[in-house]
């Protein structure tokens, strides 16, 4: 399963990734519509926040608007979303985005546009493993479905 793995130590804070993301995923030049968010603290420390595709939100969504695609990316289906924002606050890494112009939250779909755009090589499309969500197990009819997550 692919996810965007940040290396903030290499980042030069040009926010090329954010521009690329907003353009590719939201067809906009508004950086606040980017799913990857790069910030610089007062001391100069850089933080890159982006979804690691862990899938916690899949089990949180009341209407199953969030699913994992075959390629492993976790995606929000806008037409099913009721805009409750549970997923936004339950996200363990704070990587679910909202914007005043959008009713549904949006997030990184691991398309790699940001990785390509980064001039400093601070982003990588890495392979990761995550525990299948409860919903995925149920759908697959697997007996190992777990609910041991701390938010229940």
């Amino acid at each position: 399963m692919k996810y965007v793995k940040p290396h903030p130590e290499k980042c030069g804070f040009v926010q090329a990734c954010m521009r690329a993301c907003a353009r590719k995923t939201q067809k906009s030049d508004d950086l606040s519509l980017s799913s990857i968010v790069v910030t610089q603290a007062d001391g100069g420390t850089i933080d890159i926040n982006v979804c690691n595709q862990c899938g916690t939100c899949i089990d949180i969504c009341p209407v199953t608007a969030i699913t994992r695609t075959k390629s492993g990316a976790v995606v929000v289906n806008k037409s099913l979303c009721v805009g409750c924002y549970s997923c936004v606050e339950y996200c363990p890494t704070g990587s679910m985005r909202t914007h005043a112009s959008r009713l549904a939250p949006f997030k990184c779909i691991a398309c790699g546009a940001c990785v390509e755009a980064c001039p400093a090589g601070a982003l990588e499309l890495a392979e990761g493993e995550f525990e299948a969500s409860y919903l995925e197990c149920e759908q697959a009819g697997e007996p190992g479905a777990t609910f041991s997550k701390s938010y229940f």
């Binding site: 089990d59 949180i60 969504c61 009341p62 209407v63 009721v82 409750c84 924002y85 549970s86 606050e89 339950y90 409860y134 149920e138 479905a145 777990t146 609910f147 997550k149 229940f152």
Partner: peptide, 13 residues
């Protein structure tokens, strides 16, 4: 039955 967000209306966490 655990593991399901059992609100009686949308968004009840």
């Amino acid at each position: 039955h655990q593991g399901i967000p059992d609100g009686c209306w949308y968004g009840c966490t």
